[in-house]
Design a protein around this nucleic acid. Structure first.
Ligand SMILES: [Mn+2]
Ligand SMILES: [Mn+2]
Ligand SMILES: [Zn+2]
Ligand SMILES: [Zn+2]
Lengths: 136, 136
DNA sequence: TGCTAATCTGCATCAATTGCTAACTAGCAG
DNA sequence: CTGCTAGTTAGCAATTGATGCAGATTAGCA
């Protein structure tokens, strides 16, 4: 994800306005490695800006995602996670505490795959399920 | 997934009863490659057994899953899919029509992975997103 | 044939997300 | 610096997928 300053530019360039709510979310997401849910972000944002709406959090995250600044991660349980890391990477989720961490997989393109005939693949997501060090 | 006859045995062995509703669902799921949702199965089941409850469909599918006879597949949009194929395999989903097909990935254990330190991995799911032949 | 624990149905509830709209405001034109 | 207006926000309703619950029903055994 771009920096808050760069996002300010990018939003205005797209005819979108830069509001205090959006700037706050730019800051909360920038460099965030927690893979937070919309609701978790809403809680954090509410500390600095009481009265901000959960709806606005969803809205802004969706905007950022459609601009390619965020990725949506579905770990198969509960709410979707938002990820400012748009590099090619994958995830591991702890099935006990729900923590999500980045995983980098080399040669994920060179897998020997059977069953993709007729399919044009756009993207691949690899999700590891397990137990983190703390929950071991 | 075991055959309807074998499941009848297995259910009784576990102290579970074998009802007409369950038998119907055993039959509908056996060899089913559609990766149906609970609701899709409910529709199919309702044809042969009007009045069957969606709640019963969920219940039975959950029972089968916890007996290891079914796998739950989350394709990241809409409802969970149920899969009688419990072999080690993965999936490709058409982002247009939602169709899900089996994919077999060789050497998925031998991936060169960075970021799993401290994590004990139980399972890995690989999901390919794309466009099927019909929706191309 | 009768008993009883398990099951089924139907409805309430829940969690996550999206739809809607009146009030508000960023950002530009004058 | 003002006023306008398209875009945004807050708050609440609605939707979707799934689970909780309880009274009526039934499989399976004595
Ligand atoms: Mn990530
Ligand atoms: Mn499958
Ligand atoms: Zn953990
Ligand atoms: Zn398709």
């Amino acid at each position: 994800m771009k920096s808050p300053t760069e996002l300010t530019e990018a939003f205005r360039a797209n005819g979108l306005k830069v509001t205090p709510q959006r700037q706050l979310l730019f800051r909360l997401m920038h460099g965030n490695t927690m893979h937070p849910t919309a609701d978790a972000l809403f809680s954090e944002a509410s500390v600095q800006m009481p009265g901000i709406s959960l709806r606005t959090v969803y809205q802004t995250l969706t905007d950022l995602a459609s601009m390619g600044e965020l990725r949506l991660i579905d770990v198969g349980a509960g709410a979707v996670r938002f990820d400012p890391n748009v590099d090619d990477h994958h995830h591991v989720v702890c099935q006990t505490c729900g923590d999500v961490r980045d995983v980098y997989v080399a040669d994920s393109q060179n897998l020997s795959i059977d069953g993709l005939d007729g399919f044009a693949v756009d993207s691949t997501s690899i999700l590891f399920h397990g137990s983190c060090a703390r929950c071991a």
